[in-house]
Design a binder for these strands. Structure first.
Lengths: 196, 196, 196, 196
DNA sequence: AATGAATGAGCCTTCATTCAT
DNA sequence: AATGAATGAAGGCTCATTCAT
């Protein structure tokens, strides 16, 4: 077997391993050895490719955000009406790819870490801004700007809130229930409304 | 004067120190020495009173929850109508005592830690249940049980979501805006409704 | 046995251990564990008292310099004439306490480390300045300022040079020979001279 | 073009890179990667040609010594009288090629490393012996053997001492001053002397 | 001839925890 | 009631070195 061009393979494996490790431990308190072990390589190699733990974590968060963004783009593209745009954004947030224990745990852990790391904070702010603007891309066609803004804000908070509650595990809303809750809110707010 | 009856004083000081340390660092990654230092005692003493770091953290979370509960009890007691009961629960969540950076950071950090510690998880579930039942104590007088349940669920998620978004700091909703968002949601859902 | 007031004891033990470790290895490439082990404590304790390896090394160098300075002070105090002052400075440099393998090796190693550490460099410069001024305290009474300065410079270089050559071990000048060489130089330069 | 006969080119490049790396860092604590990088090759290649770091360092020291020896040979060849021979040896030691920060730092670093490595120690002893015999090749024509030996010893120590002091940088003797100091010493010792 | 890939070993450092006083 | 003394255990990171290509 040729051993060339391994870099992208290893990077991907390490990021995946990071997600699963964080998911299992439920926090960023995972060792580089643990991560490297899951990826089937030595911890030295993880350092070789990412320089430091911080950077591996950062790359992982960025990866998650990128995936979310890709999914969202795709969903928005498939949406027809403004109303559908809004729903599709919500739907992606609770899709099987996103709303799974490991990703949720990672998400939460990164929120905490963001308190210390300005790089991570920046990343999460980008996510927040994107979510808002994605929601607005639909809401702006239905409600007056002002109101649309407020509804987008609330919807985003609702999504994050459902994520955090999901983290408590057992008993709490599954994806379907979560979506229903958000849609119910949207329905109430948008009911009978539509810009002329 | 003999130094007698210091225990409650030290416990309180250590818990306060824990909150402020967590608030400043933004995570539970604070050392026992750091906490003890803030409380003006040796780390050995912290162990003497709490046994282990876990237990100090646990006691701290319980303290925060207890405070929240006391505030809520008081607010509910002062509320007249069912509608007021709902609003008072929301108001307490965003009161000056609760919605401050240190407490928010601690809150978030505990959510993450709860993934590992079942004791903490239990505590947070109690909080979730209490919040739900407090909201229900008002909503049940206005909406049919089923619907009330759903609104309570959404309201709780909304509150938590606003907390988490506040953690990203700058620019994000202050207490007044946060309350307005929740109240707006409630208004829409309860508008014109009232059990006969 | 009471275990209080150990700090000065441990600091001393650790510094001594550092000197002997450096002396044996012949360089600063000694591990904290090695040093701590020689001092009969854990490496964690070494960090507890000195914070970091750098600081332990720095403290060690300072210790050596301080000892040298004390010895020199004492010798100068005992010296009668200006000529005797010069000789006493030289004598101390090659005294049993200073001119021993361990100290010489440490000395040399610190010179190298000084290239990287400005703190150490400062320390060694202080040593150089002190040596010069100590020599001058005698020479100034014998030669005109200009010439005295030059002789002091050469004497200092000679001393350092003999140290470095001693580091190569076996065969090379022992203390007596070293002193003889320096004194021979001084004799030639000072012969028949004395300020009126 | 086939890349043939690269060996000598690479060896030279690696040795030069080693000197400059050591000179910059001020110690032998340079990584193989750093050295290889400076030479524009991979660290694996450095191992390919030199086997191990030790050997690269050894080869580097030998290179420096060889250069010094060549320069000295040439200078001695050009010298007419015995007195000139002595001066030419001194002059080479402080020539632009030798008395430059990088070389001085390397020199010093190697002295330290020699404590551990007997191979290096042997090398430095050869240097010491050569320096002595080169000086003697002049002094023996002027002073009786005994005295000549002593003066050679002192001169060598003086040279090394001036090197070490130069390592402390700023303010300390430049080449001209260094030479003046040594020549002044020689002048005093040789003044009016000459073997019949 | 040359290198990317990979690792084992080791070091500094941190920290919760214990214990004697 | 309180603390200084002390440590074991563990983690991040570095680096010389090897190997397959």
């Amino acid at each position: 077997m040729p051993k060339i061009g391994m870099e992208p393979v290893r990077r991907k494996a390490l990021i995946d391993a990071t997600i699963s490790a964080i998911g299992e431990r439920g926090s960023l308190d995972v060792t580089m050895s643990e991560i490297a072990g899951r990826a089937g390589v030595s911890s030295a190699l993880a350092h070789h490719y990412f320089g430091a733990k911080d950077e591996l974590l950062f790359a992982t968060m960025r990866h998650i955000l990128t995936e979310l963004n890709i999914d969202t783009r795709r969903a928005l593209h498939a949406a027809g009406t403004a109303r559908e745009r809004v729903s599709s954004v919500v739907a992606v947030s609770f899709s099987d790819d996103q709303f799974q224990p490991e990703i949720i745990a990672a998400w939460l852990a990164f929120y905490v870490e963001a308190q210390k790391s300005s790089a991570l904070r920046r990343l999460l702010k980008i996510y927040a801004r994107r979510l808002h603007s994605n929601l607005m891309s639909g809401l702006a066609g239905i409600l007056p700007r002002n109101e649309a803004d407020r509804v987008a804000e609330a919807t985003a908070a609702l999504i994050d809130g459902l994520y955090i509650r999901r983290a408590l595990k057992d008993g709490v809303p599954d994806a379907a229930t979560a979506i229903a809750l958000v849609e119910d809110y949207l329905e109430t707010k948008l009911n009978g409304r539509s810009l002329p």
